[in-house]
Nucleic acid binder design. Structure first.
Lengths: 211, 211
DNA sequence: TCGCAATTTTACCATTTGGTAAAAGCACGA
DNA sequence: TCGTGCTTTTACCAAATGGTAAAATTGCGA
């Protein structure tokens, strides 16, 4: 009975059987759901196991532990989460590029509310398992983007303002609809907020940034 | 040994000794800290007890249980949290009133980040212990405020837009600095974000709302 | 089809955690 | 000063939870 469990190396070992891939995916999918709904400490391995349709020890066969699952999720999340910002085209029309970014961010909130909440939970708790990623992944990208926006403003293509706070406000306003959905739905009488949000945010940032 | 513990009646019984008031306050203060930092399930009575300088059973002498402490905090929070919106003056200059509201909200984020995070945590988890309060406390106030803003817009005193989404965006952008402080501080190199935020948000909402 | 390794289950454990019972201590008015 | 009732401590407990050991089972290449 060799003790050679695969463990979470995030695709480091290419030796992944089909059954392994399937179960890993199941576990991560279930864990995303549970972590997003209850936060890290509020989530239990039993919940994740039940939702994944596996036994708890079986889950621990695929991952080193609860924390490893969480970290794996956060790592994977980072990429997709930052994609829209990476796709801002320095050669495009500045206002169009930023408005497109806003819309893509809002779209992600609608399509991936669990991912948004997972992220929000982690940051709210002080980013205990993510600070390194913020420094090495997020920070450089934001610095670069802020510099780009600054350039656009200096060239008179956008109204002058602090690009960093602009980015914060875009994040805040778009993610709000996923993270605070419970509140939004009460105040909108259960109506979907995203329709109106798209129109509102387009107008907000257009007026803000038109030179 | 009569079993007549005071219990949490939120000032229902005026029979509160000085020592009772002091210890209740200590507990709530400690609980605010712990709940804000770790979320509801992440917080433990032992942590709260340690930080309050009391023993765990002693804490349960003053409150019916963990949940009662949390509910007590949320109830109390609602009032202070909504105060700025209540203070919007229907007779004042619309743009001034809204900008003042933005600044007061931002100020509250700076002064009461723990309260902001406590609230954010609760909403993120789907507002399990707060939905009634949202319906009965928040909803009517927001409806009223939205109608007021609508009136201002109809009168041509503000640029036309959806007042509800306007309110959401004000909440999102101001609370962001408290709730996502871990992220903001990384991206601002540890600099305080509130200075720049005040300028940025003033400009944002001024440009948005100027008729 | 055989045998070995990958996978899954069963049976546990130690710790943590919310909570309780009841004794001990303390404050303060009569 | 005494005693009554408010307050605090001590000693627990049951359930939940993350995790492990090892046996049982399954998949699969030779």
């Amino acid at each position: 009975m060799p003790d050679t469990a695969p463990q979470d190396q995030d695709d480091a070992t290419p030796r992944t059987s089909r059954i392994q891939q399937r179960n890993r995916a199941r576990i991560l999918e279930a864990a995303l759901d549970v972590f997003a709904r209850h936060g890290y400490r509020g989530a239990t391995l039993d919940q994740i196991a039940a939702q994944a349709g596996l036994s708890k020890p079986n889950i621990l066969y695929y991952f080193d532990g609860k924390e490893a699952i969480h970290v794996s999720l956060l790592n994977h999340l980072m990429d997709t989460w930052l994609a829209p910002m990476r796709e801002i085209d320095p050669a495009g029309d500045p206002l169009d590029e930023i408005l497109r970014y806003v819309h893509r961010k809002l779209e992600m909130s609608r399509e991936f509310p669990r991912e948004s909440r997972l992220f929000a939970n982690e940051i709210l708790q002080g980013a205990p398992r993510m600070r390194p990623h913020l420094e090495t992944g997020l920070k450089p990208l934001v610095d670069r983007t802020a510099a780009m926006i600054e350039g656009w403003m200096a060239a008179g293509l956008l109204a002058r303002t602090d690009p960093r706070h602009l980015i914060f406000s875009i994040w805040a306003t778009t993610q709000h609809y996923a993270d605070f959905e419970a509140q939004v739905s009460v105040l909108m009488d259960g109506e979907d907020g995203f329709e109106g949000a798209a129109r509102y945010l387009d107008r907000l940032y257009r007026r803000m940034l038109m030179p």
